[in-house]
Nucleic acid binder design. Sequence first.
DNA 1: TTGAAAGCGCTAACAC
DNA 2: GTGTTAGCGCTTTCAA
Lengths: 376, 376
Amino acid sequence: MVLNRYGHFMARSMHVRRPATLASLAAELGVSRTTVSNAYNRPDQLSPELRRRVLETARRLGYPGPDPVARSLRTRKAGAVGLLLTENLSYAFRDPAAIGFLEGLALACEDAGTGLLLVPANPEREDVAAVHRAGVDGFVVYSVPDDDPHLAAVLERPVPTVVCDQPDLGNVDRVGIDDQAAMHALAQHLISLGHRRVGVVCMRLARDRNDDFVVPERQQAAHFHVQRARLAGLAQAFASVGVDWETVPVAERFDHTMASGASAAAQVLERDPQITALICTSDILALGAMAEVQRRGLRVPVDITVTGFDGIREAEQAGLTTVRQPVLEKGRAAGKLLLDSAERTRPRAVTLSTELIHGTTAAPPRGTAEERWFGP
Amino acid sequence: MVLNRYGHFMARSMHVRRPATLASLAAELGVSRTTVSNAYNRPDQLSPELRRRVLETARRLGYPGPDPVARSLRTRKAGAVGLLLTENLSYAFRDPAAIGFLEGLALACEDAGTGLLLVPANPEREDVAAVHRAGVDGFVVYSVPDDDPHLAAVLERPVPTVVCDQPDLGNVDRVGIDDQAAMHALAQHLISLGHRRVGVVCMRLARDRNDDFVVPERQQAAHFHVQRARLAGLAQAFASVGVDWETVPVAERFDHTMASGASAAAQVLERDPQITALICTSDILALGAMAEVQRRGLRVPVDITVTGFDGIREAEQAGLTTVRQPVLEKGRAAGKLLLDSAERTRPRAVTLSTELIHGTTAAPPRGTAEERWFGP
DNA sequence: TTGAAAGCGCTAACAC
DNA sequence: GTGTTAGCGCTTTCAA
C-alpha cells in the first residue's frame, strides 16, 4: 500500500490511481500543457518527434490521457445523451417494445459516436437527483407520465430534449405515433366485424396503482398520454356507432405483464360475460388476456375476439390482431432529432405511421345477424 | 434571437441556455458561492430561510442547479458506470442473452443510484476515442475478444473494471461461468447417449470474419474466451472416448443469428451427413440449426440431436437441450462487483453455476446397440 | 511550433 | 451559519 497525494491509501495491486495529469506530464517533459494537450487532440499542431516523446513519456508515467470529465467541463460537451424511462431501468430490458426503442436509439447514438446514459430514475422515489447528476448533452424521455417529477427535472436542465409518446410539452421536440387514430382504426375494424359489446384492458393511467376498473374521469385525466389517446380512440369509434362508452368495462393494470393481462381479462369477463371482443392497449396485455380466455375454455376468435397494440414479435407469432408501430424507428428518430438539434429554433414533431395487422384473433362475433342468416 | 455571453446566437424559443451559474447566483444574492452550493448539497448547513431565498432566486434567474460535469470534476465522481460491448451497441438489444445481462447490470446500477453509460465502441473501427471520452467511475466489459483495442483502452483508464466472460486479465475483477466444464458436461451427456460422430457450430472466434470450417489452431487461438473454452470442453470430452477431434467438423459464423446457425448446420451436414448430433455453442445458433435440419426433412431428435448453450427463453420454448447460464445474475454480479470495489486490494473472480437442461432435442442416435437389440 | 494566461463551474478545507 | 481560498484537469485564444 502507498499513499496517494490525497493521503488516501491505494492498492498497488489494483489499477494505478491517476498519478499523472496533463500538467505533471508537461512539467516532466519541460513543455507547456498546451503542447501535451495538442499531442492528444491536435497531432498536426506539433512535430511528430515531439508528439512521440510526449506519448512515450505518458506511457512511462502511466498517464492515461486527458481526463474526460475535465475535458467535458472545458469543452461543454459530455459526449453522451441521457435516457429517462418511466420504469425501473431494468424494466426496459423486459418489455419488447422498450427494447426495440432502445435499439433504435442506440443505433442513432452509435452513428453519432455518442454514448447513451441510462438514467436511474426510479419512479417509486421522488428523488430526481439522478437527473441532476447526469452529465449529458441532451435527454430522450421515453413514455413517462406527464406529471413525472423526473420529466420536470429534465425540462429544467439547459439541454435539448426529445420526448417520446408525449403530448405537446411546449419547447421540446417530440416523436411518436398517432395513438388515437391508430386505435380508432382498430376499433373501426372490430365495429365492421360486428362487435358492439366489448371490454377493454389497459396499462396504467397514472402513477398511482389502480388494478381495477377505470371510471371515465380517470380515463380522460390519464397522465400517460399514450394510454389516454388509445382509450380516446376507442371511445370515439364506439360512441359513433351508438355504444355508450360509460358502460364498457375498462380494466386497468399497473404492472405491464402477461399476468396482468390475464387477471384484467378475467375481471372484465366476470363483469360482462357477454362481450364479444377484448381490446387490449398493448400486445403483452393481449397475450395474457388470450391465455386467460383460453383457460376459460373460450376459443379465439370463434367465441371471443382479442386484440393488442404494438406489434411485437411475440404477438406476430401468436397471430394477434394488433396495431404495429415502428418502435425501432421511434428510437432512432428520437436520437436523430436530439443529435442534430444544432441550429433549430423551434420544436419539431415527428409522427410515425402505424399499420393495422389483421391477425387471426379477430372475427365476427358469434350470433351476428350474418351468422343467424347463413348459419354459424 | 439574442446573444449569449459567448457571442453565439441562441434561440429564445428553445430551452434557456445556462444563463446563470452558481457564482452569478451568489453575486445576485450577495452571498458566497459556498452558501449557494450548500443550499443544494447540504441543506443543514444554512438557515431554512436563506436556503429558501437561494432556491427562489435560482428559479427566478433560471439557474438549473449545479452543473453535473463541473461537480464531477470537483468530486471526482461521475455517478455512472460504463459498459463496453463487443458488438455494435444496438446488437445488445437483439441478443436475448445480452439483454438478460443488461437487465441484471441495470438492476445493480439502479440499486446504487448509478447511471449506466453504453459506450459506443464500434468494433469495426479501431477508434477507441469513445472509451477515452466516457466520464465514468468504472467499466464493465462484456464478452469482448481478448485482443480488442477497446478493452486495452479501458484497462488503461484509471478506474476499476469488471470483465465478463474473460480469462484472467491480471488486475481486474471478473465474472463468468465455467464454460469449459459446462460444455464438457453437455458433451458427456451426449456421449452417454451414444453419440460419437458429431458436428459443431460455433460463434465467431476472432475479430476477423471466417464463415467456414475452423482448423484446430484457430480453435485454440480463439480470442473469444467463451468460445474457446466451450470448444475445449467438447474436444476434451470427445477425445477422452477416443474421438479424433481433428476430424470433427466445426463451422464458425461471424454473425450471431439464426440464419447463421442454419447455414453453418448445412455446411456441417454437407461435410459429414453421418453425424448423429449437432452441437451449437449458443441457443440462437442451435435454433437456426434446428430449422435447417428440419428443412432437410430430418427429425429432431430421432434422426439427429441438436443442442445449444445459454438457456434463453426461446430455447426453452423449443425444448432445446442446452446449458442454462444465469445471464441476469451475471450482469448483476458484474455491477455489484464494480460498485463496491471500494476497499479491495486484489482482484476478485465470481464464477456462477450453470445447469444442464435436458430438453427434447437430444436422444440416442439411430442404430445404437440398444436400438438394434430392442428395435427402434 | 510552442507557451502564458484565463477560465470552464463547482466543492471542500478551513477560518471567521 | 457563512465566507475565503484553493484547486479539480483540462482547452483555448492569443501572443511570441
